[in-house]
Simulated scan of single mutants.
Amino acid sequence: MEPAEVYRPTTTTDQQTKGKYFMVPSVHLDTPRCCIKALEVLLSFVAFVLEEVVNNCTSCAPLYFFEFVSCTAFLFTLLLLILLITPLHQRVGISCWPHLDFGYTLVIAFLFLIASIVFAADNGSLTVEKAAVAFGFLATAAFFIDVLLFWKKKGLPCQNTSPPADGQAVPVAESEKLNANGNE
C-alpha cells in the first residue's frame, strides 16, 4: 500500500467540499427545512409586495407594522438561508447557529402572527389587503412548521445536554486527552 493511499480519503473530502458553494443538506440545514426556509422567503416577499400595492389606508399603523414584519422576515430569512446553505456561515464568526436559527424563526413566527392578526382586524377590506393578510398567515404557518421541524429533529437548542443515562463516560476532546498526559 502506497503512503499516498493512506492520506487520500481526507484530502479528497477536503477538495470535494472546497469547490461547493451551495451545500444542501448541510450541517445546520437539512433538505426539508431548506425547502421550508425558501417557502418562508417567497411567502413573506409576496405578503410584502401585496402590502406595498395598497394605495390608501384608513388606519395606517397596522399596515405599517405588517410592512415592517414582512420586509424584515423576507430580508433576514433570505440572509439566513444564504448563510446556512453556503460556506459563508464559517466566516461570520457565529458559533451557535442552531440557537440563532431557532430563536430567529420563533420570534419572526410570532411577529408575523401578531402583524397578520392586527392587519386582518383593521384593514380597509380591499382585495389586495385581504390577499396580503392571507399570505401573511401562510408565511406564519411556514415559520411555525420550520420551528416544529427543528424541534422534532434536533430538540430545543437551549436545553442543556445531560450525560448519558447508561453510565458511559462522556467523550473527552482529543486535545484535552493530550494535555492531561502532560503533552502540551
Rank of each mutant, 00 (worst) to 15 (best):
D101P: 00
T17V: 15
S59N: 12
P87V: 05
E51L: 10
D14P: 09
F143D: 01
L43S: 03
V92K: 03
D30S: 10
L106D: 03
A165N: 07
F22D: 07
L79S: 09
C35V: 02
C35E: 02
S59Y: 06
S116A: 12
H99C: 05
F66D: 09
R8N: 13
V54R: 03
K154T: 00
E174T: 11
T58Q: 14
H28I: 02
V41N: 02
F137T: 01
L88Y: 14
F112V: 05
D101C: 00
T161C: 10
F110H: 04
E174Y: 10
F135I: 00
E52K: 12
T161Y: 08
T72L: 11
Q15L: 15
M23W: 08
G19T: 12
L80N: 02
S175E: 06
T77R: 08
A38M: 11
A109N: 05
A165F: 06
T10M: 15
S95A: 09
A169M: 09
E2L: 10
T58K: 12
A180C: 08
S95C: 03
M1V: 08
E176N: 14
V49K: 04
P3W: 08
K153Q: 07
T11Q: 15
H89P: 03
V6R: 14
A121F: 05
R91K: 14
V107S: 09
S162M: 15
C96M: 09
V49Q: 03
F76N: 01
A115N: 05
L78Q: 00
P9R: 10
F45P: 01
V172R: 14
L156T: 09
A141P: 07
F76H: 02
C35S: 02
G155L: 01
N160Q: 11
A132P: 08
V46K: 04
S59I: 12
V54E: 11
L126N: 15
V118A: 13
Q16P: 04
A139E: 04
A61W: 04
K130A: 10
P164I: 06
F110L: 09
N160Y: 08
P163S: 05
T12P: 13
L100Y: 07
L88S: 11
A115M: 02
L83N: 04
L43I: 05
L42Q: 03
N123M: 01
L156A: 05
A169Y: 06
G103R: 01
N56H: 14
T77V: 05
E2K: 10
N123K: 04
L178S: 05
P157D: 00
E52Q: 14
K130L: 12
F74E: 05
T161I: 13
L156N: 08
G136A: 07
C158E: 12
P87N: 08
V170P: 01
A141M: 09
A139G: 05
D101S: 02
S44L: 04
Y64T: 12
L100K: 03
N123P: 06
E129P: 13
I36F: 04
L84Q: 04
F150M: 00
E52V: 13
S59D: 07
K37D: 03
D122P: 01
C60P: 07
V170C: 08
A173Q: 04
T72Q: 07
T12S: 14
